[in-house]
Nucleic acid binder design. Structure first.
Lengths: 105, 105
DNA sequence: GTTTAATGCAACTATTCGGTTGCAGTAATC
DNA sequence: GATTACTGCAACCGAATAGTTGCATTAAAC
């Protein structure tokens, strides 16, 4: 159960502004400047958030002329979801086992 | 797509120590004091983390004599995973749509 | 080539957060 | 009832973080 790379992903997802960015990017790829026009924070704040999101692989960037466009990587979200679900299921299995043992006493 | 209650859950999951607590609780229910014996932080630090985890519904507590035992709620993890997966799939669908439109130009 | 519009970098601030120590309260146990 | 062992609360500290402003840089557009 390697949670090594998983924890930073959740940390990245644990911020409202970053979700605002992800949702905005869901409408289509956009640059930090473009996003700044839609969200109530400065371009620089958004650039920092995008760096965090890119660091954990939730977005990727592509140069288009003089702008840097960002794209959401939905597959990475699904991957994190899959791993989380397996951990949750494992815990339920163990708890069920513990409960069964307790009831047999 | 109500992410309202979801974001704090991810914030809670974005900390290594809290994962340590969750994993330890996976071995069986335990009190903050008991967990302090297994993890490299003080009982009070663990108590704070447990409060965070309980706040977002990832653990629940039960009084047993003079101790407060905590239990992991794996189903909550799975629920969060399910919601995350749906969001990821939705984004992939949108991106595929955008890509298709772009290719048709 | 000058202008324009984007990104990159740096410094600074306020707040949050993870952690600690210390002590008060409370409920079993003997 | 005194002791023991757990929880609860509060103050404090350092580091990280979310945000800002300001300026330098770079590349397109005219």
């Amino acid at each position: 159960m390697t949670t090594s790379t998983l924890v930073p992903v959740f940390a990245a997802l644990g911020d409202e502004t970053r979700w605002g960015i992800l949702v905005a990017l869901g409408e289509g790829d956009a640059s930090a400047s473009a996003l700044a026009g839609r969200l109530p924070v400065t371009r620089q704040a958004i650039a920092k958030h995008l760096a965090v999101l890119q660091e954990v692989g939730l977005v990727e960037s592509v140069r288009v002329g003089r702008e840097l466009r960002y794209r959401v990587l939905g597959a990475q979200l699904s991957e994190a979801a899959r791993r989380l679900d397996r951990i949750g299921a494992e815990w339920d299995r163990r708890l069920a086992g513990i409960k069964r043992i307790a009831e047999e006493l």
